[in-house]
Amino acid sequence: MLFNQTESDNERMTQRSVTEYGYQDLEKLMSLMTGDEKHSFSATSTLDVIWTLYDSVLKIDPANPQAPDRDRFLLSKGHGPMAYYAVLAAKGLIAVDDLKHWGEFDSSFGYHPDGELIPAVEIGTGSLGHGLGIGVGMLMGLRLRKQNEPRVFCLIGDAELDEGSNHEAIAMAARMRLENLTAIVIDNNSASLGWPGGIATRFENEGWSSATIDGRNHEDIKTALTQSHPGVPHVVVAKVEEK
């Protein structure tokens, strides 16, 4: 539910809060960065998946976002991080006020996220095709430490999947049986040469478990992201409207 901005809303939006923001507040949070007219809230392809991840899937303590036992979320895609920042703000992982300075020289919040600037962000991304390989390495490290709980979720775009580095990681993740790895492919049909046979097939051929779902349906997203996939990594292909 969207709301009309009032003075009390303004006040509320400038305070850091752990629980009081809901999905309906994301548009207003995003508009702190983009302005009301500049960006179509509903057109943000990653919005519903990132919201569902932080609302009901990831185990991350806002008071200690770098705790060793946290789940790790990697926004490999890097582009268009307004939805990501808005969700982080809604969940108390960053201060809402900081969003107003998006893209400014001294801001920690740029057009691509930088993990060195934001404690709640795992890695700096923007150049495509880096997240999945790093995620494989993180899970190899967690395995060496015998930490079996933390999961790694890596969000990539269907066009980003063009990058060959992803396919290096897809092969190895399955061979290493990284069952704590979930790749999420936001599919808005923007890969220039397409994916004949479907995106999920590319992962399944390497031995991954897969689910292809409506990337706007929060229940479906949650179900797909929490389903059991013993012994193998899992891909969720989240289809959204075409770009």
């Binding site: 795992e122 890695i123 880096h130 999945l132 390989g133 790093i134 995620g135 494989v136 390495g137 993180m138 899970l139 190899m140 490290g141 060496l144 580095s165 290096e168 990681a169 190895m172």
Partner: peptide, 8 residues
């Protein structure tokens, strides 16, 4: 990438 993930 894997080495970086391990370093991380």
């Amino acid at each position: 990438g894997v080495a970086a993930g391990l370093a991380k």
